[in-house]
């Protein structure tokens, strides 16, 4: 028996995938996913380091309330990965500190 996956559970037939880059690495993304979901499916769970202690962070609340999952998308820092849909060709970067050059 094939292992259970979320996609098999809901009998998903996704539209063709596209690619984005995350810190320069190419990642394949299914359409309809947020950037957070795209990164999770690529095995990435952290994409920000905190301003003070430099600790890694990723998704926490998953619904746009906590702002822990901030990252830089196409040059714009402080985007909530759990809200922003991934688009073909997005250039996504880990956010260090405030996301602005200090």
């Amino acid at each position: 028996m094939r292992p259970r996956t979320p996609a098999r559970l809901v009998r998903a037939r996704p539209e063709p995938s596209f690619t984005v880059t995350f810190d320069g690495r190419e990642i394949t993304v299914l359409p309809g996913r947020t950037i957070a979901a795209a990164l999770w499916s690529a095995g990435v769970v952290s994409w920000r380091t905190t301003r003070d202690r430099g600790e890694p962070r990723g998704v926490f609340c998953g619904i746009g309330v906590c702002f822990d999952c901030l990252l830089t998308v196409n040059g714009r820092p402080n985007q909530r990965a759990c809200l922003v849909r991934a688009e073909p060709g997005d250039v996504i970067r880990t956010q260090e500190g405030t996301g602005h050059d200090d």
Partner: peptide
């Protein structure tokens, strides 16, 4: 509790329902 991989219960559910992804 701030380690990546620790998520809210509702957050795990939201990511699953909305993105068809698991936290691990």
């Amino acid at each position: 509790w701030t380690l990546p991989g620790v998520v809210t219960a509702g957050g795990a559910q939201a990511m699953l329902k909305g993105g068809l992804v698991l936290p691990g």
